[in-house]
Design a protein around this nucleic acid. Structure first.
Length: 426
RNA sequence: GGAGAGGUGUCCGAGUGGUUGAAGGAGUACGCCUGGAAAGCGUAUGUGCUGGCAACGGUACCGUGAGUUCGAAUCUCAUCCUCUCCGCCA
């Protein structure tokens, strides 16, 4: 959501943002509804003023004067009621339109239609060179007995996963390592529920638009969040925080649920795209100010990179183009880790700066030292998402015998083991 | 799931139909006092929209939504949440 005044005064910029982000927005309709609502409100408030004045006269009036005043009050009430449906319709319409208004992208964002227009910024780490035929992660899981896809499908359907033994411990170890890295860097751990109210999705910006990606709980007004960004974003909804509490930096752990409606048959095999996964999300609430925000953006990007470094995974950093960045975002970079079996990089992290777009929806403000009130700015980035991270992890660290080398930084989390799994010949 | 109590400003807390945006206290800010500080004293201290250069107005908001009324924080209904007790339970 953007400031209505800003929209009025920057029509061209908003129009362009919607265009390059490929957001369907009838800006002219918005402006029209806004003008009409202003007019309606003016008339309503004038009548309310008159009604209030009139009502104040009643107790002072003599018995003889009262009936006339009360009648006048009734008439005013009648007129107000008559105006109400139109007023409400305009308010609703404006709110709906405002929810569709995209954030203005940062000047550095490349123009583009979709993820094929994203721009690679840099590559880090060495892609492994194997002197044997490398296996894909599904084969590796199978070799070590760490997964059981057929039985899981019977229990939970497709796009569900199960990890066993060392495989399960490995997932746990990686999550814990990520949490430790973030904690060292000043992030407070949150363990959050994925079960949230529908309005929190509106506040985060996932609604309207992402409804079919979300699981709804039958018979309850609760839904399952696809990221802890949703509950954390709404944690301070409606509050005016003291500025000295900011920035708030959270490493929020939760399960994440995604229906994957519309992903058709993509990535059904293995651990890339599952309905329920575990994620540590970096979430930052801070004061406004682009310079500081961009520094924070770099910091949370750096945190994710530190985690990948610790896991010794080759990756690249990609800047998302306007068409692939989401309506609410000012700036967005993805981190993609190298997946040898596919010979390409796959997204493991997604780093975003939203300006005050999210906080306006959430109603999250803070009071600065001078007593002025501003909307907070929000940023988020994946800390680590499992099991997807296991895909590059297993594949990059496989050895000729199929066993998995454990990077040094991860060994303390796995009882000091340097290698996982059982070897097979040939 | 059953029974009861309650949700008011940054916080505590008064307020059961009329001039209450809301007593009182705490906190905070500024000033006075003081060698300095504390205490004390004085003043100020909600948000959105809207009118105005401004001073200052108008309007809405006392969990949320609907209703009754000339007029609602105060009455009615629904709903969400919190607390206590019972039940169940990882």
């Amino acid at each position: 959501m953007l400031d209505l005044k800003f929209i009025r005064e920057n029509v061209a910029a908003v129009r362009r943002a919607a265009e390059v982000k490929r957001v369907a927005l009838d800006l002219d309709e918005l402006l029209r509804v806004d003008r009409e609502l202003q007019d309606l409100k003016g008339r309503t408030e004038a009548m309310q003023a008159e009604r209030n004045q009139n009502a104040k006269l009643v107790p002072k009036a003599t018995q003889a004067e009262r009936p006339a005043l009360i009648q006048k009050g009734k008439d005013l009430g009648e007129s107000l009621r008559a105006l109400e449906p139109e007023l409400r319709a305009h308010e609703d319409a404006l709110r709906q339109l405002l929810l569709q208004v995209p954030q203005i992208p940062h000047s550095s964002v490349p123009l583009g239609q979709d993820d094929s227009d994203n721009v690679e910024l840099r590559r880090e780490g060495q892609q492994p060179v194997f002197d044997f035929a490398p296996k894909d992660h599904v084969a590796l899981l199978e070799q070590h007995g760490w997964a059981d896809p057929e039985r899981v499908a019977q229990v939970s359907g497709s796009r569900s996963y199960l990890l066993k033994g060392e495989g399960a411990r490995l997932e746990w170890a990686i999550l814990t390592l990520a949490l430790d890295v973030l904690q060292e860097r000043g992030f407070e751990m949150l363990s959050t529920s994925a079960l949230v109210r529908p309005e929190t999705f509106v506040a985060s910006g996932h609604f309207p638009g992402g409804e079919d990606q979300v699981y709804k709980i039958e018979g309850q007004e609760l839904m399952l969040a696809g990221t802890s960004e949703v509950p954390v974003n709404s944690l301070y909804a409606g509050e005016i925080l003291s500025a000295d509490l900011l920035p708030m930096r959270y490493a929020a752990y939760s399960s994440a649920f995604r229906s994957e409606a519309g992903s058709a048959g993509r990535d059904v095999r293995g651990l890339i795209r599952v309905h329920e996964f575990k994620k540590v999300e970096q979430y930052v609430l801070m004061q406004q100010g682009e310079e500081a925000a961009l520094e924070m953006f770099a910091a949370i990007l750096g945190n994710a990179e530190a985690i990948l470094h610790a896991l010794e995974l080759p990756y690249r950093v990609v800047q998302n183009c306007t068409g692939d960045m989401g309506a609410g975002k000012v700036l967005m970079y993805d981190i993609e880790a190298w997946v040898p079996s596919e010979g390409l990089y796959r997204e493991t992290h997604s780093c975003s700066y939203l300006g005050d777009w999210q906080a306006r929806r959430t109603g999250l403000r803070y009071k600065d030292a001078g007593g002025k009130i501003h909307f907070a700015h929000t940023l988020n980035n994946t800390g680590i998402a499992a099991p997807r991270i296991l895909v590059p992890f297993l594949e990059n660290h496989q050895q000729a015998d199929g066993r998995i080398r454990v990077p040094e930084a991860l060994r303390p989390y796995l009882g000091g083991k340097e290698v996982l799994g059982r070897a097979v010949q040939g």
